[in-house]
Design a protein around this nucleic acid. Structure first.
Lengths: 331, 331
DNA sequence: TCCTTCTATTTAAACGTTTACATTTATATT
DNA sequence: AATATAAATGTAAACGTTTAAATAGAAGGA
């Protein structure tokens, strides 16, 4: 059942059928009604491949994900999905597992016009490659803009978020504050570290490189990180982590050492994923507006879909610091 | 840059170029070499839409996911992805959020031949709809086959897994064993509950409906479930949960009541997701071979891609019971 | 030489749409 | 009634491939 069959059934040309399908106003009401009934009767659905070939559009966008095993991305994708659907775009999720060759492979879909655009949550390519990509294809970075790249992006102010947290710790009297971060040397990570250092500096504490440990973002890296920090002299009384998993791993180690987290020592996570509320102690965290990060990313992408030469925008969304037991809040 | 351009550059017809691309042996070695150099030189990549239109194949398969916020699926998808890639298929992940209209919308991609096949991790449609779908399109269910449907599927023996766990509990002297399950009334869930009941029955304990609580699979449902179970008389000394999140929620409640989980009461999770190792106590769990579940699913799908009339197969993969602190294993 | 057989290549149609342009039909204006 | 204008519809090309069928060319056999 294709457009030709419908045309035959209605004694019309395929062009008219196509016009009805595409809501072209230049078709008589009676004809339109006739066509719609036929379409309905035969449950005709236009072949998307034929349409794509002709229009040179796929009406699909690619979402590039570093990993599938992080709760954090789930709601972002939902934000993208729902906004994209309103505009008639379907989304296609691809996982790079942080591998450059995978990233290149999937980005190829963009160059092949297999998808009309891409929202990327993590890139390994350098700023030059990203800038060039963004100049030629609709491309937006979400949460993790490549530093120095000329590209539209949406994120929170990572530096400020950690700055605020450290400032709060200092105001509460903490004199030794540690940080467990990652070592991807990416924008969000460096921002968070800068916030940490700047706050120490601005409020009279000296940055000690032994109090900033860097590794991956797994639970175990949090444990190892906490162990390292606690071997310092003086020991920290508060630890800021670059993710909730790090915070959880750290908490797990601290508890194993007989410390009461939230009383003897404070721990702050990042991302406010669901797990933070179901551990003991519950983990304080910095909330990112995940749904809106996704939503705004698609909006930016949509501007590029309409006009590839539209100017690049950098959107910064607000965050919230949420205190739970791990920073001493009563349950 | 399309196949025509390459043809022109090589003074050959497009047919010959196409043959080279598709490794047709009927092309002279010298010609092949010439074409390949040109393809290489101009970085030509065949347009996938044109090819799809002509071959009526998309070389894409859809993976239908109930939710993005479950660690469990991540490795399954990787198993599908890597196996699919070997056969030249790309995968497209869609999330239904358990909504039937979303499921229908995405399954439409199958009927529209927008994708060549589908592996589904969860379906709301009834057995008749699934059987009919599977008869007409390459379709495989992974982990959650629709009961009574004639369809290829891969899963573990859920009944046996819980049966074994309960049997172990009984052998260790537990006399009152509770279960926290979901209420989707799906195959895996009912299997797990049956395993629970059967084991009680086979080893001389009587099934008490107050000791089986059903709800969703969120952390909080685990907490609420545990509370309900502990209000029973006699109180359970062991609890089997239908997921790790339920187990974690339950543990969180039990601890809040001053119980030492792993000593005063045992808790068993399900799925062996990463979190189980980073909580305290660490959570015992039933491991599903996630990567292989994905891999075998694609293999089954591939059989259907080659021959839609090939017979449906039901594959059962092995599981492992992994004891950690929550069932009394020392760290 | 002529025929046969095989191999390598070309030709042209097909896949299912959309759309610029052409044509027909209806309506309004004189 | 004749003409101009507007509205509705049709025609045919185009998108980029693959592939059955046709053709050309080479090699071998008589």
């Amino acid at each position: 059942m294709n457009i030709k069959d419908i045309a035959k059934m209605c004694n019309l040309s395929v062009a008219t059928i196509s016009r009805v399908i595409n809501n072209d106003p230049k078709v008589a009401d009676s004809t339109r009604k006739k066509v719609l009934t036929a379409i309905d009767k035969y449950k005709f659905v236009p072949n998307i491949t034929g349409r794509s070939l002709r229009t040179q559009k796929s009406n699909k966008i690619l979402v590039l994900l570093p990993t599938m095993s992080n709760q954090f991305y789930s709601e972002i994708i939902q934000g993208i999905e729902e906004t994209a659907e309103e505009k008639g775009y379907a989304i296609l999720v691809a996982v790079t597992n942080l591998q450059e060759h995978q990233e290149i492979k999937y980005l190829h879909m963009l160059r092949m016009k297999h998808v009309d655009g891409c929202i990327s949550l993590f890139n390994t390519l350098d700023s030059e490659a990203i800038s060039s990509l963004a100049k030629n294809y609709p491309f937006v970075q979400c949460c993790e803009p490549t530093m120095g790249a000329d590209v539209s992006s949406v994120e929170i102010n990572n530096r400020q978020a950690v700055y605020d947290v450290v400032k709060q710790f200092i105001n509460r009297g903490h004199k030794t504050i540690g940080m467990i971060s990652g070592e991807y040397y990416k924008s969000s990570e460096l921002g968070r570290e800068t916030g940490y250092k700047d706050a120490l500096n601005d409020f009279g504490l000296k940055f000690d490189k032994n109090l900033l440990v860097k590794n991956f973002y797994r639970y175990e890296d949090g444990s190892v990180g906490a162990k390292k920090l606690m071997s310092n002299n003086p020991k920290p009384t508060a630890i800021v982590c670059a993710s909730d998993s790090l915070a959880l791993g750290a908490t797990s180690y601290l508890k194993s050492q007989g410390l009461i987290v939230g009383k003897d020592i404070c721990v702050m996570g990042f991302d406010n994923t669901a797990i933070t509320m179901y551990t003991s102690p519950t983990i304080s965290s910095i909330n990112q507006p995940r749904y809106d990060l996704g939503k705004e990313s698609f909006k930016l992408l949509y501007e590029k879909l309409l006009d590839i030469n539209s100017t690049n925008k950098k959107i910064i969304l607000p965050y919230q610091i949420i205190h739970r037991e791990s920073t001493g809040c009563k349950p």
